[in-house]
Design a protein around this nucleic acid. Structure first.
Lengths: 190, 190
DNA sequence: GCGCGGCGAAACCGATCGGTGTATTCCATG
DNA sequence: CATGGAATACACCGATCGGTTTCGCCGCGC
């Protein structure tokens, strides 16, 4: 059976929306989405009010998985520095996938220039959460200015993911971790 | 008279394409573009082979202006460090404009996931040129690894422009220059 | 005065957009 | 077996997509 069988129409729709909108952009058509999910357009509009809300739901659905992949597997044993650098190591590991096209949440924010779009709100929330995670680690590690360090790390994170996704830069030599390390050192993080 | 009068149809078209595709995204329609430029669709298709090529031309047209805005006004008197930091100061100055939506070349690369698109090639070229400018300054300033430093600075540049354009971050407190400075120091740049 | 070329207005092309209406089928529950 | 909700197929809506074509005006050279 195909990987999309057996799941509920709602799940199949959200998975297809996440996959295709990430690969082809948010302007992917609902017709294509439904065909890919094996769900009729009529069913889709009974499950969701609009394409915009389905897109937001498809982003929301993957938030936990996304954050879990960036979280250090053994948080208690790791230092703040290790937990921060683990995020960038994971970014570098993911970027070698030929299907990698950058952080999907940043891509949505760039493509949907409308900040009122429901999907933009989801994406902003993910970015905010990551920043707060960085800031918490920065505080625990004794950084001189935890807020500043967190904002700097997000500059690196988003810059690296955007450039790697656009195939303008490669991260597989540790560019992101090296840059983050330089900032951690400059911030006086333990 | 409107600002678009008196210029040639070609210029008006390219200006409108640059303005609207930057504001609304590259999926802006040719109908809208032509209406804004006051040029008939027929004339547009005599001047350009396709919408894609017109988009590429509109990006190309602004390259020199874009690069000039990032270049230090007095290159001979300035140190490599000053010339590098000037780029980030200009980025921060531009980002306070309410119409700022990030670096237009990075936005095009993210929106047009197709690297074969003629506009993608133009955008990649701009990024490459900026990286080489950074590397030249890094060499002249005696950085330990000029190539690495140039790549790191572009991470900052693109991360800052994308986040500022998406209104997820503000640069008006000097975030970009502060981060770049930390990297220059870490690289041993004079 | 006349014809011709360039250009704008607008119709037109097939395709696709987001979204809806309607009729039908499937399946689980009572 | 009957009923009802869920899902289907499919036609349809007006709008817009990138792109082409027709027509008619206007100015310039002969």
């Amino acid at each position: 059976m195909a990987s999309t069988d057996k799941a509920s129409p709602c799940d199949r729709l959200l998975d297809a929306a996440a996959r295709l909108s990430y690969r082809d952009g948010v302007s992917i058509g609902v017709e294509t989405l439904c065909r890919e999910a094996g769900v009729s357009k009529r069913s889709m509009y009974q499950l969701f009010d609009s394409k915009d809300q389905m897109l937001a739901a498809s982003l929301e659905r993957r938030v936990a998985r996304y954050q879990a992949r960036l979280a250090h597997p053994d948080p208690d044993a790791a230092t703040p520095r290790e937990r921060i650098l683990y995020v960038f190591e994971q970014l570098e590991k993911g970027s070698v996938d030929p299907d990698y096209h950058g952080c999907p949440y940043l891509a949505v924010l760039v493509e949907l220039k409308d900040p009122e779009h429901p999907a933009s709100a989801v994406a902003r929330g993910v970015k905010q959460t990551l920043k707060e995670a960085f800031r918490t680690e920065a505080e625990r590690g004794g950084a001189r200015d935890p807020e500043l360090l967190a904002r700097q790390l997000l500059l690196i994170f988003d810059g690296a993911s955007a450039r790697a996704g656009a195939r303008v830069e490669r991260l597989d030599d540790g560019l992101a971790t090296a840059t983050a390390t330089a900032l951690l050192d400059a911030a006086g993080l333990a």
